[in-house]
C-alpha cells in the first residue's frame, strides 16, 4: 500500500543524507521525496511517498523517528489529507498538436507557461494520479521532456505537524 510520510527534521548539513541513506541501507522503497525549509528556518520538512506492507511501513516510521536529527514523523495516509505534485511537461507543438495540447491542458486546469514556434511547456498541479492521467491523455509522440516535483502533503483540518 502507498503511504505518504511527513518528516520534520533539523535543518542541518547531512540531515537529508541520513534520511535518504536509511532507505537504501534498509532496503526500503522510496517513490518520491520533496524537501525544503519551513517557516522556521531551523527546521526542514520532507514528504516521502513509499509503498510497503504495514509491517515494513511501521519499521520505516520507527527507523525515521530513531534518527537523531528527526523531530517528528507522521503518516499522512492514516488520516484525511491533501497531496499535490507539480509537473512541467515539454511538448513538440506544431500543426494540429498545438491546439490539442492547449485543449487538454485546459481540461486538466493546466497552464502553458512557455511557448516557442515549435514547443510548449505545460505546468500542471494536482495529485499524482491526476498528473498520470494527463500524461496518458496526450499522444506520447509529441512528448519531449517531463519533470515532476514529487508529492507534498498536508493533513486536513485542525491536525498539524509542528514542534
Amino acid at each position: 500500500m502507498r503511504h505518504i510520510l511527513s518528516v520534520l527534521l533539523e535543518n542541518e548539513p547531512g540531515a537529508l543524507s541520513r534520511v535518504v541513506g536509511l532507505f537504501s541501507q534498509r532496503n526500503f522503497n522510496i517513490e518520491t521525496l520533496t524537501v525544503a525549509a519551513t517557516d522556521d528556518p531551523t527546521l526542514s520538512r520532507i514528504t516521502i511517498t513509499t509503498t510497503g506492507v504495514d509491517k515494513v511501513v511501521e519499521q520505516i516510521t520507527k527507523q525515521l523517528n530513531k534518527l537523531v536529527d528527526v523531530v517528528k514523523v507522521v503518516d499522512l495516509t492514516e488520516g484525511d489529507h491533501i497531496e499535490r505534485e507539480l509537473m512541467m511537461v515539454k511538448y513538440k507543438a506544431t500543426g494540429a498538436a498545438r491546439d490539442e495540447i492547449k485543449r487538454t491542458a485546459d481540461i486538466f486546469r493546466g497552464q502553458i507557461i512557455d511557448i516557442t514556434p515549435t514547443t510548449y511547456v505545460v505546468q500542471l498541479v494536482g495529485s499524482s494520479k491526476k498528473l498520470d492521467a494527463f500524461m496518458e491523455a496526450l499522444d506520447t509522440s509529441q512528448l519531449i521532456e517531463v519533470v515532476r516535483t514529487g508529492v507534498s502533503g498536508i493533513a486536513r483540518g485542525e491536525k498539524t505537524l509542528s514542534v
Partner: peptide, 14 residues
C-alpha cells in the same frame, strides 16, 4: 568520514 560512517553510527557531528 561523515558519509562513510553514516550507516554505522548513532549520530555524527562535523
Amino acid at each position: 568520514m561523515i558519509g562513510i560512517s553514516r550507516p554505522i553510527v548513532k549520530h555524527s557531528f562535523s
